[in-house]
Computed example of a mutant assay.
Amino acid sequence: MSRRQGLHIPLFDSENVARVRMASGSASETAQLSSSLPPLPEKRIVLGCGGAGVDYLAVVKQFPQPDDKMRCVSAKVEGGGNAANTLTCTARLGLRPRLITKVANDGLGKNILDELESDGVDTKYIVVSKDGNSPFTYVIVDPQTKTRTCIFTPGDPPMVLDDLSPSSVSSALSGTSLVYFDGRLQETALVIAKEASNLGIPILVDAERKREGLDDLLNLADYVVCSAKFPQAWTGAPTVPSALIAMLLKLPQTKFVIVTLGESGSVMLERSLHGPGMDNMDVDNLFNSLKQNIDDSSIMPTCFPSEVVMLRADGIGQVTGRIIIGTAEKIPPSELIDTTGAGDAFIGAVIYGTLFLSSHGHHN
């Protein structure tokens, strides 16, 4: 998501609503947004570890064919990177985020730091290399299909364990209520995750796609947010609901898994430790029955939770919990720009909601 865009992020928004012509992120607009939200969590410090960079966005009339030459309709240079986007979202929602990442001492790196600081993200734990280049991405925006195509150039030199001292890790974790990982900077992320786990700090992992080292993070995760394809790709289960069962069985520490489904909204499987244990229901049948409640004419996002039951997936196993289906807000085509960073904004809202519920005594 362009970090200069305004926010309009219900907790169960879809991946298709991130870049909307709504607000420029001014103080008055942020205040207006905050007034529509629940009270802020008591504990608001969030630590994130992952990507930050610069996005070069080019809007074209249609996606180019090989060897094409074309003019862009409009162009922007804006902040990007999964972790940076997500933490910017949490800052605009009133939380106090800190970011661990690495940039270079170049023009892009300075812009990244300046923009994050102006949005309220604590940058003192960001490593700045003397030489090399900061991460950047070319983003081709196709307004016809409402999609974006990303070409990523990683930062160089890459982040290594020696970049962050044990005292810096301890300082970054001090007072933190939740730690978030976007699946990048694997070695550094795992060191931070292990220390957070030892301190009893909850961990949320973004499982966008299978990556080296991601399984180690998932094994420590209290909460997981996935892209649409990840659960089945990771578990081999035949359907998304059955894959969620498989994920909770493989990750006994995880309290919930959320899957974003684009314009179809999202679905959560939340583990319960105190279920009635009397009703045994097929997870796919329950999922399909909940979908029958969706009103296609409704514009605003709505949640449809099941009761807490014993959920089973044939050939996989069973867990006690409940399914929650969330619909997506319907954005008029004239307002929808593209999907850049929509998942990052979604996760930022999930972090906000998780801390809010935790601080107000809502537990499994």
Score class of each variant (00 low, 15 high):
C49I: 14
A243M: 15
K124V: 13
P158T: 06
R322Y: 03
S36C: 14
S197I: 02
D314S: 04
E307T: 01
S264Y: 13
I9C: 13
S165I: 01
L164P: 12
Y56E: 15
Y352P: 01
E117A: 04
A189P: 02
L57Q: 14
R44C: 00
G213T: 09
N82M: 07
S118F: 03
F152N: 11
L217I: 08
V141S: 13
T260L: 07
L7Y: 15
A31V: 02
V128R: 01
L57D: 15
I112G: 01
D142F: 02
Q65I: 04
V205Y: 02
S298K: 10
P38M: 09
L249N: 12
G341Y: 08
K76P: 05
T147M: 11
S118A: 10
R184M: 14
D206C: 02
D162C: 00
D338I: 03
T327G: 10
V179L: 07
T86S: 07
C72F: 08
T30F: 03
A228K: 15
L286E: 14
V103T: 03
T153L: 05
L161G: 03
D156T: 11
S359N: 12
R148F: 12
C89T: 15
D142A: 08
H363F: 01
I9L: 13
I331H: 04
G317D: 07
L251K: 03
G94Y: 04
G80T: 12
P333V: 10
I258A: 03
F304A: 10
S171D: 15
T101M: 01
D142V: 09
A345R: 14
G213A: 05
R4W: 02
K61G: 10
V225H: 09
L286A: 11
G80R: 11
P158L: 07
M310V: 09
P238L: 03
G265V: 15
V127T: 07
L214Q: 02
A313V: 06
L336V: 07
L93A: 01
I258L: 15
I258T: 11
N280P: 03
R96S: 01
